[in-house]
């Protein structure tokens, strides 16, 4: 079904800038940390689904690669100018350093980066699916969709209660919110795709938006496409530069011409059409990909 997706995509991150921001607040929530930072010039231009990259460990750091974070919300806060929030899961050296920062510590930021979620031009029915802290960018998305008069049914899930993220914020901005955990410690015992199947079965849905781990996105896309529902998935690929020059964060995506290409998550994504990503081939160069070398016998 045609639902009039607005197509206003800057393919080269042409609005992105590099600024020195400042930490305003670091809040612990479950297994995650919410960082609030000043980001003058970035916050004002951010659209739902875009991300920032953060320099790690200061100028002389031995961690030379920036880390990427989906923006969960932007605000205009008087004297600070634009501020933004992103969620950090402290699983590595860089992310642990980040969560130990305190108010007024400087932070080197580049953004807003990547293709945002495309928003419907009409008031349509949307389902948002988030896995783990992949639900963070859905907060800003849900706000935009509600502003357009859309119905927003949100499903968030995780392996266990402590890894759920954004329950309170998403409850506030969604028409309905469903929680799932694989161990049954909160909400419905099961996976987000079970809840998604239920909604798709019982009501007319125009678009599914999703962000979370790759296997979850693969299932969300599969379920949606099987029911002929348009889906947009924000992928989580490991990046080195975040600005389109290093060719690290590629995955196989089918184009309008039916040809598979290795596209960069940072500039051609992170939001892709769910029916276009070759999910089961992520991590490989599938046969038929443009430029794949044919191995001669």
């Amino acid at each position: 079904m045609y639902i009039g997706m607005a197509c206003s995509v800057a393919s080269m991150n042409s609005g992105a800038i590099q600024v020195m921001g400042e930490v305003l607040d670091v809040q612990r929530t479950g297994k995650y940390f919410v960082m609030s930072v000043t980001a003058p010039g970035i916050a004002e231009r951010t659209q739902p689904g875009q991300f920032v990259t953060v320099g790690m460990g200061g100028e002389e750091s031995s961690m030379i690669l920036r880390r990427s974070f989906a923006i969960q919300r932007v605000q205009s806060r008087g004297i600070y100018g634009g501020t933004l929030e992103f969620v950090v899961s402290p699983v590595g050296k860089g992310t642990r350093w980040l969560t130990k920062l305190r108010r007024h510590d400087p932070l080197n930021l580049v953004g807003p980066l990547g293709k945002p979620f495309t928003l419907p031009t009409k008031a349509v029915t949307c389902v948002l699916v988030g896995g783990g802290y992949g639900s963070a960018p859905l907060i800003m998305l849900a706000e935009s969709l509600r502003d357009r008069g859309c119905r927003v049914d949100t499903i968030i899930g995780a392996s266990t209660e402590k890894k759920l993220y954004g329950e309170l914020e998403l409850k506030r901005v969604s028409t309905s919110l469903t929680l799932t955990t694989e161990d049954g410690t909160a909400g419905v015992h099961g996976r987000v795709t079970d809840a998604l199947e239920n909604i798709l079965e019982s009501s007319q849905v125009d678009v599914v938006y999703s962000c979370g781990p790759m296997p979850m996105l693969a299932s969300v896309a599969e379920v949606s496409t099987a029911r002929k529902v348009f889906s947009q998935c924000s992928v989580e690929e490991s990046m080195a530069c975040g600005i389109g020059v290093c060719m690290t964060c590629v995955l196989p995506v089918v184009g309008d011409d039916g040809i598979t290409r290795m596209l960069r998550s940072c500039v051609e994504g992170p939001v892709f059409r769910g029916d276009r990503v070759r999910w089961s081939d992520v991590g490989t160069i599938p046969d038929g990909t443009l430029g794949k070398e044919v191995v001669r016998p």
Partner: peptide
């Protein structure tokens, strides 16, 4: 000719450096 490059992961951070194997995409 066009070239797809190698499969991912293509990058690993190392002390004050990084390792890459893009495969000339």
């Amino acid at each position: 000719a066009p070239r797809s490059g190698r499969a991912t992961p293509r990058m690993a951070e190392t002390p004050s450096g990084m390792l890459n194997s893009i495969g000339l995409q």
